[in-house]
């Protein structure tokens, strides 16, 4: 079978209507996408990981990476105090250095949104809320939608939803599509604006790169603003090759439809060195248009301090230590 992407300049609405007529048409479309060879994809990611990013390029990359962080806490033990402290850190990650940029967003459970909002105000740092029965996604549809509406109502700028992996793995693609589309509708605010929707695949459960490519297209067709690797609750979480395949997907999707979608690897990215590898991959696979917090994010918590530490090394010329960075 010829493996193909939609022709360039495809009409997105027409394409969506076309491929979502039935489970069969959607399946045909997704399975008609070119396959991904695991070994080749991993070799490409590894090769990109050997780029040597030094001096000015490193300084640029570190600041950009900080600006791309979705500073995250998603624990049962989260409290208003905890998330407020995190929000404060998000605005001023390095209190000792006013030139240090803010992060992109704070990512919390929906019931914490109001607390975070109080701290962030109009700082420009966004609030992201995980919704739709995060992390498993195992709840009735109306509950998932209510979860989403609650978060938006509480002030979330961005909704990080999880897909129903069970439905995806059993081939009920249309169900996954409709859930994403419905959640996107639930992101709407009364004033006509809408929270941005990130769609989490939990790629560690989908296992194959073929699945990652298919689910990426499925989510983009359903209206995702961002596609996101993982909840952080399942191993493996984000990996460079998975992110590579997703970056290829957003690149190809824009090529075909003209619509740009963002990418968010989340979980497992803990060092500045890793973050720089992701930025290199963004740069060389999707292109520099994606080198912007509007189009690429890191879902992370401990990553931020390592970025700050490396940044301090760049500015002072000395190696720093963990005691010099806040642990919120």
């Amino acid at each position: 079978m010829t493996a193909t992407y939609p022709a360039r300049g495809a009409d997105l609405d027409g394409l969506v209507a076309d491929v979502t007529r039935s489970d069969a048409t959607l399946r045909r479309f997704l399975h008609g996408l070119p396959g991904v060879d695991q070994v080749g994809a991993e070799a490409r990611a590894a090769a990109l990981g050997t780029r040597s990013i030094k001096t000015t390029a490193k300084a640029f990359a570190l600041d950009l990476a900080i600006r791309m962080v979705d500073l995250t806490t998603l624990e049962g033990q989260d409290t208003p105090g905890k998330v407020r402290a995190l929000a404060a850190k998000a605005m001023r990650p390095d209190p000792a250095d006013p030139t240090c940029p803010s992060v992109a967003a704070v990512c919390v459970y929906p019931d914490m949104v109001a607390d975070v909002k109080q701290v962030l105000g109009d700082s420009g740092v966004h609030i992201a809320a995980v919704a739709t029965a995060f992390p498993s996604g195992r709840a009735a549809m109306d509950i998932k939608l209510a979860d989403t509406r609650d978060a938006v109502e509480a002030g979330a700028d961005e909704i990080d939803m999880v897909i129903d992996r069970g439905a995806f793995l059993s081939g009920r693609y249309l169900q996954v599509f409709e859930e994403i589309a419905a959640v996107r509708e639930a992101c709407a605010r009364p004033d006509g604006t809408s929270a941005h929707l990130k769609v989490i695949f939990e790629t560690g459960e989908l296992q194959t790169y073929d699945n990652v490519r298919r689910v990426s297209w499925l989510a983009m067709l359903a209206g995702a603003h961002f596609i996101k690797t993982s909840t952080g609750k399942v191993q493996p979480a984000a990996t460079l090759p998975v992110t590579l395949v997703m970056l290829e997907a957003v690149r190809d999707f824009r090529e075909a439809t003209g619509r740009m979608v963002g990418v968010k690897p989340a979980g497992g990215i803990r060092t500045a060195k890793d973050a720089v590898k992701y930025l290199v991959t963004v740069n060389e696979v999707a292109g520099q248009d994606w080198l912007d917090p509007d189009w690429f994010r890191f879902g992370a918590s401990t990553l931020l301090n390592d970025l700050l530490m490396q940044r301090t090394k760049m500015t002072t010329g000395r190696y720093s230590g963990p005691d010099y960075f806040t642990l919120d």
């Binding site: 079978m1 010829t2 493996a3 193909t4 070119p34 396959g35 991904v36 060879d37 080749g40 994809a41 070799a43 490409r44 290829e248």
Partner: peptide, 12 residues
Amino acid sequence: FDDAPIDQAVEG
């Protein structure tokens, strides 16, 4: 071939 894993083929 037309059913190749296209991105890996380009790398190849």
